[in-house]
Each structure stands twice: as C-alpha cells, then as structure tokens.
Amino acid sequence: MAKVKGDIVIDIEKCKGCQVCMPACPNDVIGVSKNVNGKGYNYVETVNEECIGCANCAVVCPDGVITVYRKRIE
C-alpha cells in the first residue's frame, strides 16, 4: 500500500491563534506556540510529524493561513 506523507506551512504572521484548526486535525499535528507573532497572538505550529495532508485544518482556517502539501511514498 502506498503511503502518503503530508506537511503544512503556517503563515505565522497572519495566524490569529484562534485554534479552530486543532480539533479539525485527525492526528493532533497542530499545537499552540509559546511564542507570539507581530500582533501578539500565540500562533499555532506543527508539533509532530504525523500529518497526512488531509487539508482539514486549511479548510476551516478563517484566515486561510495554512498551505497543505501531500506526497505519495512508494
């Protein structure tokens, strides 16, 4: 069975830290950062490597800051 591996890139300067993406993720890839961005929000970041590129987080993100990548691994 071919496996897929995904990755997300978060635009941390535009992220407002609303955390709506966190319950949408099936593998708990997203966590809240201890750091803040230029506007003072605790942005979200990836906390593990389990991303499968399902794009659920990007679909619910109100500010559209998440770009999703997915690659099949033979």
Binding site: G64, T67, V68
Partner: peptide, 22 residues
C-alpha cells in the same frame, strides 16, 4: 505537491475579523 492553498481571489490583507470568526 500542494493540496490546498489560500485562493488568489482573496487579497493579501489580514482580515479585520476577530480570531475564529466565521
């Protein structure tokens, strides 16, 4: 490998809505 990215029809401005607003 891009599956999803922000559409080009939204401008680059940060939206003025509160965090988490629909």
């Amino acid at each position: 490998n891009i599956v999803y990215k922000r559409t080009e029809l939204l401008t680059d401005k940060v939206m003025s809505y509160c965090p988490g607003c629909g």
